[in-house]
Write a protein that binds this DNA or RNA. Sequence first.
DNA 1: TCCGGAAATTAGACAAAGTCCAGATTGCTG
DNA 2: CAGCAATCTGGACTTTGTCTAATTTCCGGA
Lengths: 136, 136
Amino acid sequence: MYYTRDNMAGLLRGHDINPTHQRIEIAHALFSRQEHLSADQVMAFVNTRHSETSKATVYNTLKLFLEKGLVREVIVDPSKVFFDPNTTPHHHIYEVDSGKLSDIDAEHVHISGLPPLPDNMVTEGIDLIVRVRRKA
Amino acid sequence: MYYTRDNMAGLLRGHDINPTHQRIEIAHALFSRQEHLSADQVMAFVNTRHSETSKATVYNTLKLFLEKGLVREVIVDPSKVFFDPNTTPHHHIYEVDSGKLSDIDAEHVHISGLPPLPDNMVTEGIDLIVRVRRKA
DNA sequence: TCCGGAAATTAGACAAAGTCCAGATTGCTG
DNA sequence: CAGCAATCTGGACTTTGTCTAATTTCCGGA
């Protein structure tokens, strides 16, 4: 299953997103790499070839993708947000020194003993982050 | 067990921190409230009475407290870091709309099935964040 | 008490991430 | 082709946090 630019239009439509030129480029940047990218990185990738996409559009589009459930937000670095094209249930390992972020499949991870929520609340998601450091 | 300004000096010394006037105020702001505060909030609290403490000092001091293990950092809000005077093992519930943050005692929570780490890595901490939203 | 140095604090300039807005472009649809 | 809504854009702006060089505070010894 490859993520070519051509596939992107369908992917976007499937998530109720009007596939414009810029949106396809941004989706392609994320999905073809299958990596966690910051808005800055997305902008850099999208603008390497030749086409120019503005900062505002990158931010707007990432927010749109988020709302439509196409990508996920990963908040581990105090200075920037990462966007994750993997929306299947999974957790993260964050290497503190380098900022490297990798996935842990949620399938084998089990979390028990969480207290019940108040009636008027719903869980939006559970983020589990294992912060690791290189041994001294 | 109360957290008065007088107790703060001992608390700081116990963590190898030279108890200066400003540090005592900042520690007091956090510990007397037992709440998660952002740097901004700390600064506001510390400067309400009359004494002035600069932004640089607030940031420097919070970083120092962090290094010395007096407080913990909580990264849940994409726009700012919270500082947590509770350093016992615990997790967090984050109410997305309001930004309200509360604790989950780690005692009854059990996490299993995490994959082993590479040899040259050590876990620095495991953050578990339950993101919740008010029911529509 | 006075001196000197180390530690701590400060104001304010700066940097980086993200937001906002008003105007320009695009792409339908009739 | 005209009109309209959706999208995109540059650039000004905001916020959080960092940095630096100068000042202040603290303390031990003569």
